[in-house]
Design a protein around this nucleic acid. Structure first.
Length: 1273
RNA sequence: UCUGACGUAGCGCAGUUGGUUAGCGCAUCCGCCUGAUACGCGGAAGGCCGGUGGUUCGAGUCCACCCGUCAGGACCA
C-alpha cells in the first residue's frame, strides 16, 4: 500500500526523516558503502563557532551539501570532516568586552593562561547551536570527529607547514606600517578598522609646507628656469607656454628673459603636520608635469619661487586668501626633479639608515589632491615606507608608542600629537607646528580640512600609522606560480577566479603573518637577542630535541609544554651556536590556521614529521636492503606457511582479503630489516601479535628497539597478546580500526613508486580537494590561504573546483544586521517552512553567486508551487494505485517500452532529457538551472500535462495494460524526481522515495532501490527513450490547445460546451503528421470533436518574411533591402518556393535565389474564421453551437452539477447513486438523449425525469434551469 | 580611487555563437470549484531590456563612456 496524505507539512517531514537518518546511520552508510578508490574530496571550511549561525550560513552550506550529495548519488565516496576555526581576534575582542578588560590588562590584571582559557571556552559556546542548525538544515558533515584549530595536533601541523615555508627561504622579519592606537597601546587589525563607526569625519589642521631646495650643479637649471607672467588669453584660452615640451635647461632665453630664482621651495601638503619632523623625502610622480611659480609668501610677504604640479596651480593660486602668480615656468616632468636635495624642514635628528632629504619618484602620486608632491615620512605611512625603502632614504620615528614626540624631536619634544590623554588643557601640536612654519616662512598655506579618518573603536581616538615589527611570508615571490595554478582551477562563477582572485594574485603583497595577540598559534621561531641566531621549529619532536640541547647547554630543566599556546610556549628557551634563543612573541595570523586545514585536519604529517629538527626530506617508504632481502623473504615465507601461531591464523582470518574496511593487510611482511606480523601499507600500520616468547627481558628490549626504528621510519605500531586475539578477536579488530582512523593514508601510487614523497593525504587521495565552497568574502581569505599554502608547500592547487556564493540580503536588498533587526533567524525559518523549502528557494531563486534578496514569500511560493504540486502528484498516484492494488514489483506490470502509449513515452522521454540535463548541471556545479528544470518538469509537464491528460486512465475501469502503463510511468517519473531533487531537498526526496519504495514501512525494498534515496545510485540516462520528435509533437499539442482555449475564451465559450471542430493550416507534411498524432490529446483537452487540416494553399492567406538568421549570413549588408524586396514580392516568392522550391529575386542587377530555408512562411489568416496564431501555428475555431452540441453541453453541465452534489453530500468516489431531475424542456431533452452518458459519468443506477422533484434548484447556461435530487443507492 | 558582480513587467528571475514578435514564476485583472489538488485550472493585461554613444544590414546580447545598487581592495599624503 502506498501511504496517502491529507496535507503536506514539510517541517514534519524533516523531523521524521532526521529520525530515520539517525536511526539507520544513513550519512555514514552513504560514505562507507562507496568504494574508497572512487572518492570525491571535499573540504569543509571551518566556521567560527563564536557567534550564532545566520541564514547566510544555511545558504553556503546548502551549496556544499548539494554537490557532495550529488557526487554521492553518482556513486562517489564523499568524506566530509567538519571543523572549527577557534582562534583569532574576534574571539579575543569578545572575551575582552565580556571580562571588561583591554589588551593592556592581559598579563597584568588577568593571566595569559586564564585569558586563553576564557577564549577557549567562549569560542565553543555556540557549538551546540551550530550542530543543531547543521542537523536541522540537513547538512551532512561529520560532526563527531571534527578538526579543531586549537588542538595540539592541528597546531603541530601548522608549525610543520610554516617550517616548510621557512626552509624555502620564504619568510622574513621586517617592519611594516600598521594602524596603531596610542591610547589603547595596541596595533589595530583591518578588521577593527572596518568596524562601523571607525571612520569618523574630522576637521584637521593641514599645512602646505615649503621645503627649501639646495642648489646643486645638476639642478642649476631649476633656479635659472625662466618664468613668464601669465598672459591674458588671446585668440584662444591657452598661454604661450602651455603644451610646450621642456628643453632641460637654458632653452628659454630667447623667448623671454627673467631673473633666476634666489630660493626654490618645493611645496607639499599634509593633513598630519605632526609627521613633518619625521619627513625624510618628497615624492613626485615621474610622469606628472611640474612648474616653478613665482609668487609672494602670503604670511611673510617675501618673494617666493615654489614648485608644484602644473595641474594643481589653479588650486593654490589666485583664489580667495591665496597668493597671486607673478610668473610661471614651462612645465617639466617629475623625473627631472629626482635627486634634488632640500634642507630638513624642522630642526632635529637626521636618519642614520639612509640618504635622506631628497626628491624621489613614486607611482602612487596623483594630482587629485595636495600639490602633486607628497611629503614622505616612511614611519607613518604605508606608501611612504614602500617608496622610502625602494629609494633608501631612511626614516625618522620621532613619535613614541604613547603618541607623543620623542625627547629628541626638537621644538615639540614630549608633546602628544593628538589629545590621547583626554587632557582638558591639550593644545593641538599640529596648530603649533603650523604657526611655527608660518613664522619662519616655511608655510605656504595653512587651512582646516574635513575628511574621514580612522579611529580606534575602543578609545575613540584617532589612529596613527606606526612602524611595527612583523614576520612576513614572501608570497610575492611565488605569485606567478600561484597565478599559473589558479588558471587550472574551475571557479564558479568564473569571474571571481579570473577577476577578483586572479587580479589580486597579480598584485600580491607579502603576507603579514604576525599578530601581537594571545589566543592563537604561536609563531614557532626562536631568536637570539641580537638576531643573529634563529631557529624555526616544525614539530613537537623537533622542539623536544631542541629543548634537550638547550637544557644541557643552559643547565635548565625544561620540557615540551602540554599546551602549545601562550604563555607556556613563551617560557621555552632554546640554544644555538652559543646563544640563548627566545621565542618571537607574535602569533600566527588565523588565516594561516584555516589555510592549513587540508593537512592539519589529519594532523599531517603527524608521527611522520622529520625528527630532530633537520630540514631533510620527509621519510620515504623504504624496502630492505637487497643484501638481506632474499634471506628475509625466505624466512618470511616459512613463517607464513609453517610457523604461524593459532593467534596469527585467527587474526589473519579476519584481516585477509581486505575484510577490514577494505584495507589490504599483508602478513609476515618485510620492512627494512625486520619481518612484521601484519601490516597495512596504506596506513603504515603494523600489527604485532605477541606470545609468551616475547616476554624475556632480552626480547622486550629487542622489541623496543625494533619498534623505535620502525616508528622512525614512519610506521605506527599496535600490539596484541595472543590471548586477546584468541578470546575476543572482535575487540582486537575494533582497536585496530580505531588506530587506523588516526593514521594518515598513503596512496597506491605512492606505495607503488616506493620512494614517493609523503603527501598530505588524510583519506585516500584527499588532496587536493575536488570541491570547496564558501562566500565571496573568502576570496582573499580562505580561498587565498588554501591556495598560497598549497602552492608554497606542495606546488599544487589545494582545490580543483570552487563555488563562491554571494551575500544574503534582506528582501529590500539591505545587508542583514542585528542592529537593523532585519536578520533572518534560520531556526525560525526552517521550523516554519522546512529545510527543503528554504534550501530550494535559496538555490532556485537566483544563482548563488548573485546576492540573494531573501524573502519569506519566496519560500512560501516554493512550498506551494513546487512541493505542493509534487506532493499532490504523489497523492494522486497513491490514491488510485491503492484502489487498484497496483504493485510495482508485480511481474505482470513489466512491459516493453514500445508498448507504452504515446503520452507515456513522451513523459518518459522528457524524464530522460531532464535526467541528462540535471546531471550535467550538477556536475558543472550549477545548481540553479538544475532546480528550475526539475521544477518545470514537475509542474508544467508531469502534473499539469501528463497527469491531467491521463486522469481518466487511472480511474476508469479495471486493471488493464493501459492502466499498468500509466502507473508504471507515473511511478517511474516520481521515483526519478525523488533522486534528482535529493541533493537540494534531501528530506522530502527521502520521504517521496520511501513512500514509493516502501522502505519506511519496513517492507521489502522494491528491486533496484536502496532504502534511502541517499544510498541509491542515479540510474544513467536511457538515450533510447529520448524521442525529440515526440517532444516536438507534444509541444504542438500544447500550443494548439492553448490557442484553442484562448479562442474559446474570446467568444465566451466554456470548455464544457463541446464544439465541432478546429482548423489547422498545415501545408507542411511533417507538421501535419505530427499534429495528427496528437489530435486526440488536443480534442480531449479542448472539448472539440474534430481537428481538420487545411492544405489548400490558395485558400489560405499566407505571409512571408525573411529568415534573418540564415539569410543574413548569405547577403550581409544587403539584408535590409532583401527583406524589403521579399515583402514587396511576397506572393510570387511564396508561390515559387511552394511549387518550384525556389524563387529568384533581382537585386541591383544581380539575381538572388531564395530557397525554403531562407524565408519563413506562415499562415496568418483563414478568411471567414476567427483565428489565433502562435509563431508558425495557426488555429481557427468553429464557434457554431448546433442544437445537438448545445444538448451535449447541457448534459455535461448536468454531470458537473451532479458531481458537485455528490461531493457536497460527502459520498465516496465509488458510491452508486440515484438521480431525479426536473428541468426546462431543453434540459430534459438533453438528459433524455444523454442518459447513458450521464449515468455512467456520475455512477448513477437510475436517472429519472420527474415532474415534482424536491431538490436543489440550479441555473444552467442559456437561461436553462434544473431541479436535481441525488441519493445513495 | 581601483577591481568585480548586478541593473530586463509591481516583485523575484531566464534570455544560447548578435537575427525578426524579449520569456518564466509570483502578484494583478477576467473567467473557471472538470472525480489529486482553490496550496488548483484557463485566459488577459503589463517592458524606451539603467542611460548615452559606437560597431553592425541587424544589439537585451559586442565595445566605450556615464548613472545606480552591492561587495571587496587600496588610500586618505
Amino acid at each position: 500500500m502506498f501511504k496517502e496524505y491529507k496535507s503536506l507539512s514539510l517541517p514534519e517531514v524533516d523531523k521524521q526523516i532526521l529520525e530515520f537518518w539517525e536511526k539507520n546511520d544513513v550519512f555514514k552508510r552513504s560514505i562507507e558503502e562507496r568504494d574508497i578508490d572512487n572518492s570525491f574530496v571535499f573540504y569543509e571550511g571551518p566556521p567560527s563557532a563564536n557567534g550564532k549561525p545566520g541564514i547566510h550560513h544555511v545558504m553556503a552550506r546548502t551549496i556544499k551539501d548539494i554537490f557532495c550529495r550529488y557526487q554521492t548519488l553518482t556513486g562517489k565516496r564523499v568524506e566530509r570532516k567538519g571543523g572549527w576555526d577557534t582562534h583569532g581576534l574576534p574571539i579575543e575582542l569578545k572575551v575582552e568586552s565580556e571580562l571588561g578588560i583591554t589588551k593592556e590588562d592581559i598579563g597584568t590584571k588577568i593571566s595569559v593562561d586564564d585569558y586563553n582559557k576564557a577564549c577557549k571556552e567562549t569560542v565553543m559556546r555556540f557549538k551546540g547551536i551550530w550542530d543543531d542548525i547543521t542537523v536541522k538544515m540537513g547538512y551532512w558533515v561529520d560532526l563527531e570527529n571534527p578538526y579543531v584549530t586549537y588542538e595540539k595536533e592541528y597546531m603541530e601541523s601548522v608549525w610543520w607547514l610554516l617550517k616548510q615555508i621557512y626552509d624555502k627561504g620564504l619568510m622574513y622579519k621586517g617592519y611594516t606600517i600598521q594602524p596603531y592606537s596610542p591610547a589603547a597601546g595596541t596595533g589595530l587589525s583591518s578588521h577593527e578598522l572596518n568596524m562601523p563607526g571607525a571612520y569618523q569625519d574630522v576637521s584637521d589642521t593641514t599645512v602646505v609646507a615649503m621645503f627649501k631646495a639646495t642648489k646643486a650643479s645638476d639642478f642649476g637649471w631649476l633656479w635659472s628656469l625662466p618664468v613668464t607672467p601669465p598672459q591674458p588669453p588671446e585668440g584662444g584660452s591657452k598661454t604661450a607656454l602651455e603644451d610646450e615640451e621642456l628643453p632641460p635647461s637654458g632653452g628659454w632665453g630667447g623667448m623671454m628673459g627673467s631673473e633666476d630664482s634666489s630660493e626654490v621651495h618645493i611645496i607639499a601638503w599634509t593633513t598630519t603636520p605632526w609627521t613633518l619632523p619625521s619627513n625624510t623625502a618628497l615624492t613626485v610622480g615621474p610622469k606628472i608635469q611640474y612648474v616653478k611659480v613665482r609668487t609672494k609668501n602670503q604670511y611673510t610677504g617675501e618673494a617666493n619661487d615654489v614648485v608644484l604640479a602644473k595641474e594643481l596651480v589653479s588650486k593654490w593660486f589666485g583664489g580667495h586668501n591665496q597668493p597671486v602668480i607673478e610668473a610661471m615656468s614651462a612645465p617639466f616632468s617629475g623625473t627631472q626633479l629626482a635627486g634634488l636635495r632640500y634642507e630638513q624642514l624642522l630642526e632635529g635628528p637626521t636618519p642614520t639608515d639612509g640618504d635622506a632629504f631628497r626628491i624621489i619618484t613614486g607611482n602612487f602620486v596623483t594630482t587629485d589632491a595636495g600639490t602633486g608632491i607628497v611629503h614622505t615620512a616612511p614611519s607613518f605611512g604605508q606608501d611612504d615606507m614602500a617608496v622610502g625603502k625602494a629609494n633608501g632614504i631612511g626614516s625618522l620615528t620621532l613619535v613614541d608608542k604613547q603618541g607623543k614626540f620623542t625627547e629628541d624631536a626638537g621644538l615639540f619634544a614630549g608633546r602628544h600629537v593628538k589629545n590621547y590623554k583626554d587632557d582638558p588643557d591639550y593644545k593641538d601640536v599640529n596648530v603649533d607646528i603650523a604657526i611655527h612654519l608660518k613664522t619662519v616662512g616655511q608655510a605656504f598655506n595653512v587651512a582646516k580640512y574635513n575628511h574621514s579618518y580612522p579611529h580606534c573603536w575602543r578609545t575613540d581616538k584617532p589612529v596613527l600609522y606606526y612602524p611595527l615589527d612583523s614576520w612576513f611570508i614572501k608570497a610575492s615571490a611565488v605569485k606567478e606560480r600561484m597565478s599559473q595554478l589558479n588558471d587550472t582551477i574551475n571557479w564558479q562563477p568564473e569571474s571571481t577566479g579570473t577577476g577578483r582572485f586572479g587580479k589580486w594574485l597579480e598584485n600580491l603583497n607579502d603576507w603579514n603573518l604576525s599578530r601581537s595577540r594571545y589566543w592563537g598559534i604561536p609563531l614557532p621561531i626562536w631568536r637570539s637577542e641580537d638576531g643573529t641566531e634563529e631557529v624555526c621549529i616544525g614539530s613537537i619532536a623537533e622542539l623536544d630535541a631542541a629543548i634537550t640541547v638547550a637544557n644541557a647547554a643552559l643547565g635548565l630543566d625544561q620540557s615540551v609544554p602540554n599546551d602549545l599556546h601562550r604563555p607556556y610556549i613563551d617560557e621555552v628557551v632554546l640554544f644555538q651556536n652559543g646563544k640563548k634563543l627566545v621565542r618571537e612573541l607574535d602569533l600566527i595570523d588565523v588565516w594561516f590556521d584555516s589555510g592549513s586545514m587540508p593537512y592539519a585536519q589529519w594532523g599531517f604529517p603527524g608521527p611522520l614529521a622529520p625528527k630532530g629538527g633537520t630540514t631533510e626530506e620527509p621519510p620515504v617508504y623504504q624496502t630492505a636492503n637487497p643484501m638481506t632481502y632474499l634471506q628475509l623473504k625466505e624466512y618470511a615465507q616459512k613463517m607464513r606457511t609453517e610457523d604461524a601461531t593459532p593467534a596469527e591464523e585467527a587474526l589473519w582470518a579476519e584481516l585477509s582479503n581486505k575484510q577490514l574496511e577494505g584495507y589490504k593487510f599483508r602478513r609476515q611482511h618485510i620492512v627494512g630489516n625486520f619481518i612484521v606480523d601484519f601490516i597495512c601499507l596504506e596506513k603504515r600500520l603494523i600489527v604485532e601479535v605477541d606470545g609468551g616468547v616475547h616476554d624475556t627481558p632480552e626480547a622486550i628490549e629487542n622489541g623496543r628497539q625494533r619498534t623505535s626504528i620502525l616508528k622512525q621510519k614512519g610506521y605506527q605500531m599496535i600490539r596484541f597478546r595472543n590471548e586477546a586475539v584468541l578470546n575476543d578477536v572482535q575487540q582486537v579488530l575494533g582497536a585496530i580500526k580505531h588506530k587506523m582512523a588516526s593514521c594518515p593514508t598513503f596512496t597506491k601510487a605512492m606505495l607503488a613508486n616506493g620512494v614517493e614523497r609523503v603527501s598530505p593525504f588524510g583519506g585516500r587521495g584527499a588532496f587536493p580537494a575536488d570541491f570547496i565552497a564558501e562566500g565571496v568574502d573568502q576570496t582573499r581569505g580562505w580561498f587565498y590561504t588554501l591556495h598560497a599554502i598549497g602552492t608554497m608547500v606542495f606546488d599544487s592547487v589545494a582545490y580543483k573546483n570552487v563555488v563562491s556564493n554571494g551575500l544574503v540580503l534582506d528582501k529590500n536588498g539591505k545587508k542583514m544586521s542585528k542592529r537593523l533587526g532585519n536578520a533572518v533567524d534560520p531556526f525560525k525559518t526552517i521550523d516554519q517552512y522546512g529545510a527543503d523549502a528554504t534550501r530550494w528557494y535559496m538555490i532556485s531563486n537566483a544563482n548563488p553567486w548573485d546576492n540573494l534578496k531573501f524573502n519569506e514569500e519566496g519560500i512560501q511560493e516554493v512550498r506551494r508551487v513546487f512541493f505542493g504540486t509534487l506532493h499532490n502528484t504523489y497523492n494522486f498516484l497513491a490514491l488510485y494505485a491503492n484502489i487498484d492494488g497496483y504493485d510495482v514489483a508485480d511481474p505482470k506490470n513489466k512491459m516493453a517500452f514500445k508498448d507504452y502509449p504515446e503520452i507515456d513515452r513522451w513523459i518518459l522521454s522528457r524524464l530522460n532529457t531532464l535526467t541528462k540535463e540535471v546531471s550535467e548541471l550538477y556536475a558543472a556545479y550549477d545548481a540553479t538551472p538544475a532546480c528550475r528544470a526539475i521544477e518545470n518538469f514537475v509542474n508544467a509537464e508531469l502534473s499539469n500535462w501528463y497527469v491531467r491528460q491521463c486522469r481518466r486512465r487511472f480511474w476508469k475501469g479495471e486493471m488493464s495494460q493501459d492502466k499498468r502503463a500509466a502507473y508504471n510511468t507515473l511511478y517511474g517519473c516520481l521515483l526519478q524526481v525523488a533522486r534528482l531533487m535529493s541533493p537540494v531537498a534531501p528530506f522530502y526526496a527521502e520521504r517521496l522515495y520511501q513512500d514509493l519504495t516502501g522502505a519506511a514501512a519496513g517492507a521489502e525494498n522494491v528491486k533496484g532501490t536502496a532504502n534511502s534515496v541517499h544510498l541509491d545510485i542515479l540510474p544513467s540516462v536511457d538515450e533510447s527513450q529520448i524521442d525529440k520528435d515526440l517532444e516536438t509533437r507534444m509541444g504542438y499539442a500544447q500550443r494548439i490547445s492553448s490557442l484553442t482555449l484562448s479562442l474559446r475564451k474570446a467568444d465566451n465559450l466554456r470548455v464544457r460546451q463541446p464544439l465541432q471542430k478546429i482548423l489547422v493550416p498545415a501545408t507542411d507534411e511533417d507538421f501535419q503528421r505530427h499534429v495528427a498524432a496528437v489530435a486526440d490529446i488536443v480534442k480531449s483537452e479542448t472539448n472539440i470533436k474534430e481537428v481538420e487540416f487545411l492544405t489548400d494553399g490558395d485558400f489560405l492567406k499566407k505571409s512571408i518574411k525573411a529568415n534573418f538568421r540564415v539569410l543574413g549570413k548569405k547577403v550581409g549588408k544587403r539584408m535590409k533591402d532583401v527583406a524589403k524586396l521579399i515583402g514587396a514580392n511576397a506572393e510570387a516568392i511564396i508561390k515559387g518556393i511552394e511549387t518550384a522550391g525556389e524563387a529568384t529575386l533581382s537585386l541591383d542587377g544581380e539575381d538572388l535565389v531564395l530557397v525554403a530555408e531562407d524565408v519563413l512562411i506562415a499562415t496568418e489568416d483563414i478568411p471567414g474564421w476567427k483565428v489565433a496564431t502562435d509563431g508558425e501555428i495557426t488555429v481557427a475555431l468553429d464557434v457554431t453551437v448546433t442544437e445537438e452540441l448545445a444538448k451535449e453541453g447541457l448534459a455535461r453541465e448536468l454531470v458537473n452539477r451532479i458531481q458537485n452534489m455528490r461531493k457536497d453530500l460527502g459520498f465516496e468516489v465509488t458510491d452508486r447513486i440515484r438521480v431525479r431531475l426536473q428541468g426546462s424542456p431543453a434540459v430534459e431533452a438533453a438528459a433524455t438523449a444523454y442518459k447513458a452518458y450521464i449515468s455512467a459519468e456520475v455512477l448513477a443506477d437510475s436517472l429519472v425525469l420527474d415532474g415534482d422533484v424536491d431538490g436543489e434548484t440550479l441555473e444552467l447556461p442559456g437561461e436553462e434551469t434544473a431541479v436535481l435530487a441525488v441519493g445513495k443507492v
